Amino acid sequence: MARTWLSIRVELVSGHGADLWPRPGRVFAAARSHSFAQLASAIDLAFGRWDLAHLHLFTLSDGTHASLLDWWDGEAPEDTVDGHTTKLSRLQAGEQFAYVFDMGDDWAHLCTVGERHIDPFDEFGETPDRPVPYWGWGSLPDQYARRWDGTMGSRRCRSGRPAGSATCLRSCRGGANTAENDLTLCTRGGRQRGVEVLSRSGRMAR
């Protein structure tokens, strides 16, 4: 098989209020025909997340966002395309972009597209039907910063919608740092979130 797949390096920059150093990371093999939604799922699983009922947001180098529009109830940030239908073919070699999972805990990732394409058969002996990690390093933090069973987790949604959906964010109440405020910050400053992640990498020209 020809070397047509993308190699995407993903580093976990920060989350749960803390910057991570050294940064744990994974390198993914992904076809250009795969979607951003598929890449998001692969990243979340590879970084050990089990509660996936949260919003996520990609910010590309041109400021375009990609996310699951049906989760936002019409309140997605401007310039957001649907992650289900938008393909990775829009990525260019060497491009850097940001991925944020859970707008409350802000698990922020720096993603870098490799300069060279790869052959998935060389890595896996087959052609996967979704993006798959083929290299990795570092210690992964718990999604809710829990160190043992029984530790209290993050807020819970009482609306019956997935935690992190726009409807849930309007209905949840969690003290001063409410999920409703999280949505406002993300909606008004979605692009800025991505720019901050890329800027903290120290490798993106402003």
Results as ranks from 00 to 15, higher is better:
Ala31Phe: 08
Ser14His: 07
Asp44Lys: 11
Val27Gln: 10
Ile8His: 00
Arg23Ile: 11
Val27Phe: 08
Trp50Thr: 09
Thr59Phe: 15
Leu60Ser: 02
Arg32Thr: 14
Thr59Leu: 15
Gly17Ala: 09
Ile8Glu: 00
Phe47Leu: 08
Ala18Thr: 15
Leu55Ala: 06
Glu11Gln: 10
Phe36Cys: 05
Pro24Asp: 00
Arg9Tyr: 11
Arg23Glu: 04
His34Pro: 11
Ile43Ala: 00
Arg26Leu: 15
Phe36Pro: 05
Phe47Gly: 02
Leu52Ile: 06
Leu57Met: 09
Ala29His: 03
Thr4Val: 04
Ala46Trp: 13
Leu20His: 03
Glu11Asp: 03
Ser41Phe: 15
Phe47Trp: 07
Arg9Asn: 07
Leu39Gly: 05
Phe47Lys: 05
Arg9His: 12
Gly15Lys: 12
Ile8Ala: 00
Ser41Glu: 02
His54Pro: 01
His34Phe: 06
Phe47Glu: 00
Gly17Leu: 13
Leu60Asn: 05
Gly48Leu: 10
Thr59Pro: 15
Arg26Lys: 15
Leu12Arg: 09
Gly17Ile: 08
Pro22Gln: 07
Val10His: 06
Ser7Leu: 02
Arg9Thr: 12
Ala29Cys: 04
Asp51Gly: 07
Leu45Arg: 11
Ala46Arg: 09
His34Thr: 10
Asp51Phe: 15
Phe47Ala: 02
Arg23Asp: 09
Trp21Ser: 04
Ala53Pro: 07
Phe36Met: 07
Ala31Pro: 12
Trp21Met: 14
His34Gly: 05
Ser35Gly: 07
Leu20Lys: 09
Phe58Asn: 02
Phe28Val: 10
His54Gln: 05
Asp51Ala: 08
His56Asp: 04
Phe28Ile: 12
His54Glu: 01
Arg32Gly: 12
Gly15Glu: 02
Trp5Asn: 00
Ala37Pro: 15
Ala18Ser: 08
Phe36Thr: 05
Ala31Ser: 08
Leu39Gln: 01
Leu55Trp: 09
